[in-house]
Design a protein around this nucleic acid. Structure first.
Length: 441
DNA sequence: TCTGGGGTCCTAGGACCC
DNA sequence: TCTGGGGTCCTAGGACCC
């Protein structure tokens, strides 16, 4: 048995905790660069604002409907997420943190009434963090996701599922006929694992509701689609195929990519940008104790703008697997210089570290050449460099991101040419001393 | 006229998730 | 003027092996 605990409109809810005046109003949180809506309050959804809607297209609602748009404050959301997750963990013996706002809880061995237990955990999360949640309970993860969707919909649109409570939904104890009715009332596109593409194909084949999909023959699904969708159908039928992953392994790739605040056409700032991205990625790499053997750099023009497009990428093999910021920044800069072509307005670039391996596994090699040139140039040994990285991470952790950084990344702060647009950022209420709210008596 | 069988590995692309 | 970022998994097809 599984539960899925999910924060409602999570980013918006995080903002509302510290600005209660936003309650009851249509609020959205914008993606990086204030590009598009990535979280919407119920009131914003009611205005018809779609997930991913470009800000410039809905901006008029600011005046017309009192819409409030905020720049994403991921530092805040990450911290609020940690608090929410630690409380959600109280629901059962195991937990998989599936995304910033969702976790699956394994309920094996939990006694008593699961629904009342879920309501208690939900109330505690709300009281202690201010975040409203919904909880779905079912025999498989896919059904738990569905149950969560039903709990949310029942809350947001009262009467949509007359059989069900709002906020907490347990599909496991539902009488068979009621379960069929609920599955019949839910579109197949709501199923976890069915994206827009497959939803269209299913609908074209007359499979419109979750009940239709649940009743499909698994062999037919496998032949017509894939083993992935077959698992989804089996999960809907109550056969657990997707295990709880409560100890995810290290990531297989680490990316840092950004759209620019304005298009870039010169090489200089592009080199600075990817050097910076490489450094950020290297930090994440060290956090999971891995080395990268290859680095991929890419850049492209805006697909939304008319005219000639340019999209380039290059894989830079590394002489030795490394987690060194300076070596990775150098590789990223080399890659950028190699692939750069003048005459285009580049809107986005990024660095992806691939072929990762544990730092504990060391490939020995014959001593056929002196130290790599980057080491020789700075007259440091690999061990010095490793200590330097540890020191950098410690300083940046204590005094804030970017306190020390590679000089290749150019000047820091909002003045940088390629920096992103964030005109509506809220304070870092929980992670910056100066930003902590003050209560006055 | 007629050209095997069985396997692995890699890559690109497509689909999905939040 | 203005359209996010970071992941995972699967599959098909090609290269290559004996």
């Amino acid at each position: 048995m599984y539960a899925l605990v999910d924060g409602n409109n999570f980013y918006v809810s995080c903002e509302r905790v510290f600005r209660p005046s936003l309650n009851g109003r249509p609020v959205i949180v914008l993606s990086n660069n204030d590009g598009c809506a990535i979280a919407r309050s119920n009131e914003a959804k009611a205005l018809g604002i779609k997930m991913g809607a470009p800000w410039f297209k809905i901006r008029h609602m600011e005046q017309e409907a009192g819409l409030v748009a905020l720049s994403a404050n991921f530092t805040l959301y990450g911290d609020m997420s940690d608090r929410m997750m630690s409380l959600a963990a109280g629901l059962g013996p195991s937990q998989e943190i599936y995304s910033i706002d969702e976790s699956f809880i394994g309920l094996q061995g939990v006694r008593g009434d699961l629904v009342s237990r879920a309501f208690k955990v939900r109330a505690r999360i709300h009281q202690w963090t201010g975040i409203p949640t919904c909880i779905g309970i079912a025999p498989t993860k896919t059904l738990a996701k569905l149950a969560n969707h039903i709990a949310k919909t029942a809350e947001r649109k009262p009467g949509s599922y007359p059989q069900m409570l709002a906020q907490v939904c347990n599909l496991a104890t539902l009488p068979a006929q009621d379960l069929d009715d609920v599955l019949q009332a839910t579109a197949v596109s709501e199923v976890w694992g069915v994206g827009p593409r497959i939803a269209k194909q299913l609908q074209d084949g007359g499979i419109r509701t979750v009940l239709d999909l649940t009743r499909m023959d698994t062999a037919t699904i496998r032949r017509g689609w894939s083993v992935t969708l077959e698992k989804t159908v089996r999960e809907l039928q109550g056969q657990s195929c997707i295990e709880l992953d409560d100890a995810p392994g290290p990531k297989q790739q680490i990316a840092c990519t950004r759209s620019f605040g304005k298009p870039m056409h010169e090489l200089g700032p592009l080199v600075e940008a990817v050097s910076e991205f490489a450094g950020r990625a290297a930090e994440k790499l060290r956090k999971q104790n891995c080395l990268a053997s290859e680095l991929l750099v890419f850049m492209h023009t805006s697909p939304y703008r008319p005219g000639a497009q340019c999209s380039r990428s290059v894989v830079v093999p590394l002489r030795r697997p490394t987690d060194d910021t300076l070596a990775l920044a150098q590789a990223a800069a080399d890659g950028m210089r190699y692939m750069y072509v003048p005459g285009f307005r580049f809107i986005k670039a990024g660095v992806i570290l691939v072929e990762l391996q544990p730092a504990s596994v060391q490939q020995w090699e014959l001593d056929l050449e002196p130290l790599a040139h980057e080491d020789a140039a700075t007259a440091t040994t690999p061990r010095d460099r490793s200590r330097l990285m540890t020191a950098m991470d410690a300083i940046n952790c204590r005094y804030g991101k970017g306190t020390v950084h590679s000089a290749a990344t150019g000047k820091q702060g909002p003045k940088r040419e390629w920096g992103m647009k964030q005109e509506r950022r809220t304070p870092q209420y929980t992670t910056r001393l100066e930003d902590v709210p003050v209560v006055r008596a």
